[in-house]
């Protein structure tokens, strides 16, 4: 392919305390794509995103955003480069109002008119945030807090969004709702997304391309629909049970990448 990727990660290594959490991971995200990283608990997904967004420092390797090396930059500089990290769970400002939480997402910007327009845009995607604008963000439900975190991320007017488990702790209905909105943001607002998920099923439905992360390294990557049909992905991440000749599940099945 001729188009150079928006985000390119090469041989990234990163430590979580004394533990080497990311062991030489490489991946790329092209403009307009939704790319997902699948992995079980403790595979290093969150550490990988934190390293990309500059909240954790990279020990080795490189991260290029639109061709520019960003792996030595502070987190706030990277937000100014229009890449924003939407963290997992409830990383919001509990005592600030919902409105203040959303608008502080535009901290790195000063174009007032455009910020106002983006606020309306966020409210149009998440009407509940407009409804609850005045109450302290800590009083929102888990799903609403997740929407708040995404809305706050949008206020930085990002070209690239790093999304860390937007489905975490939400009911299947809410997960469906949030992923529908993410897909819309991707097509309507041209936001390129790198999406980390444990919920492989929903992630592969919206994604164009997928990586599988295990023990801090990428073990497999392919187009999302190919991954969806891969036997390994089905049995290890999608929970599809294969009927064997003996009618029982093979419990010592080996992953092909091992």
């Amino acid at each position: 392919m001729s188009v150079s990727p928006v985000l390119q990660v090469d041989n990234l290594e990163s430590y979580y305390g004394p533990i080497m959490a990311i062991r030489g991971a490489s991946l790329e995200v092209r403009k307009g794509q939704i790319v997902t990283i699948l992995g079980a608990n403790g595979a290093g997904k969150t550490t990988l995103l934190k390293t990309i967004s500059g909240v954790m420092s990279a020990a080795r390797g490189s991260i290029l955003l639109n061709g520019e090396a960003i792996h030595n930059m502070e987190a706030d500089e990277i937000v100014r480069k229009k890449m924003v990290h939407v963290p997992e769970g409830r990383e919001i400002f509990p005592l600030l109002s919902v409105y203040e939480n959303v608008s502080i997402g535009a901290y790195t910007r000063s174009d007032r008119a455009q910020i106002k327009a983006d606020l309306d845009m966020v409210y149009s995607y998440f009407p509940i945030l407009a409804e609850r604008a005045k109450q302290p963000a800590g009083t929102l439900s888990g799903g609403q807090q997740q929407m708040l975190a995404i809305g706050r991320g949008l206020m930085a007017a990002p070209n690239v969004m790093l999304l860390d488990e937007p489905s975490l702790g939400l009911s299947p209905l809410l997960v469906e709702e949030i992923f529908t909105i993410l897909k819309r943001l991707n097509t309507e607002q041209n936001v390129t997304m790198l999406l980390v998920e444990q919920n492989a099923k929903v992630a592969l439905e919206v994604a164009d391309y997928g990586y599988v992360l295990e023990l801090g390294g990428i073990v497999m990557s392919d187009d999302a629909d190919v991954l969806q049909n891969s036997k390994d992905i089905q049995s290890f991440y999608l929970g599809v049970r294969e009927e064997t000749e003996r009618g029982t599940r093979r419990w010592k099945q080996k992953k092909t990448w091992r």
Binding site: V55, A75, D76, P94, L95, E100, I104, Y107, G153
Partner: peptide, 23 residues
């Protein structure tokens, strides 16, 4: 804006990094 950033950084330092506040 600066006052709000100070509040934000005190309420959730990690989230403050995520929104681009130079904590």
């Amino acid at each position: 804006k600066l006052g709000k950033a100070m509040q934000a950084a005190s309420q959730n330092q990690l989230a403050a990094y995520y929104v681009g506040i130079p904590v």
